[in-house]
């Protein structure tokens, strides 16, 4: 486990950004998330791991109310961001999602130019007063997503023409451009090759400077590489939630240990 460099990991516990209490999610009759309690810290990368179908993506989608778009899904419990209940009736999911950005499993650039892909969010939220400001936002977002050098000469070309790894970084740039406070990533590297994965992971580590990042991943190595906190989900339950180093070296629950050592999942 030396290559994971667990010792060097600096976990400075920041104040809590997201706190979830007694969250239950139902898909029709299927009880997908069972009584999950979790506190997610600011300026930290939190990884959700667990076998397929354990509910980690479902829980992630609760955090920006993307489950609202699925008509059969029902969420119970209490999820607060900065102490505010996001399932309160007065909260507009549209505003919430501007604050809680999301990057999806498969790169999904819009059928627009690279520039318009990144400018999409700032435009609909009115973040730029004029074209120059918008240009600046686009450039800053592309730089943060480490795509500027590759894309600066082809900003007007369609985003779908980029390679898979570039597309995913474009999607990250798109999410970053709206200046969110939390960034949710649903298996952002599962469709990428190892080199693109490394680039995205590096990016995630940089994003930690300004955001609270929550990442769902199938790869335990990836969780160990990028995250400070790790939550292990199994069959809809949050089995264990602790510092990444502890989860991977000294888990307290036998199920976590079985999963980490490859016996289940």
């Amino acid at each position: 486990m030396d290559d994971l460099r667990l010792i060097e990991r600096a976990v400075d516990m920041n104040e809590t950004k997201i706190s979830a209490n007694g969250v239950q999610v139902y898909y029709g009759d299927n009880h997908a998330i069972k009584d999950v309690n979790v506190e997610i810290a600011d300026k930290t990368v939190t990884a959700f791991i667990g076998p397929s179908g354990c509910g980690k993506s479902t829980f992630l989608r609760c955090l920006n109310r993307m489950n609202d778009t699925i008509s059969v899904a029902r969420v119970e419990g209490d999820i607060r961001i900065d102490g505010e209940d996001i399932y309160d009736k007065r909260v507009d999911p549209v505003q919430l999602r501007a604050k809680v950005g999301m990057v999806f499993q498969k790169p999904n650039p819009f059928p627009k130019s690279i520039y318009d892909n990144v400018a999409y969010g700032p435009k609909i939220h009115g973040l730029a007063r004029n074209k120059a400001e918008l240009d600046e936002i686009v450039e800053r977002a592309l730089r943060r997503a480490a795509l500027w050098n590759e894309a600066k000469d082809r900003l007007q070309e369609p985003g779908t023409g980029l390679s898979g790894g570039q597309q995913q970084r474009l999607c990250i740039a798109r999410a970053v451009a709206t200046e969110p406070e939390v960034l949710l990533m649903d298996e952002p590297c599962s469709a990428l090759d190892p080199i693109a994965t490394a680039q995205v992971e590096e990016l995630i580590d940089e994003l930690r400077q300004s955001y609270s990042v929550v990442i769902v991943t199938h790869s335990m190595q990836q969780a160990a590489r990028v995250s400070q906190m790790t939550a292990f989900f199994h069959l809809g339950n949050l089995v264990e939630y602790d510092e990444t180093g502890t989860i991977f070296t000294n888990p307290s629950d036998p199920r976590t240990e079985s999963y980490i050592s490859g016996r289940i999942g």
Partner: peptide, 27 residues
């Protein structure tokens, strides 16, 4: 039009009609 397009747009805080007008219809 793939659902991922809509998710991407909604995930950025676009409303439904913005999503339809700016992402789904152009696609």
């Amino acid at each position: 039009v793939p659902q991922s397009m809509r998710d991407g747009s909604l995930g950025l805080g676009a409303t439904r009609s913005e999503t339809v007008r700016q992402v789904v219809l152009p696609a």
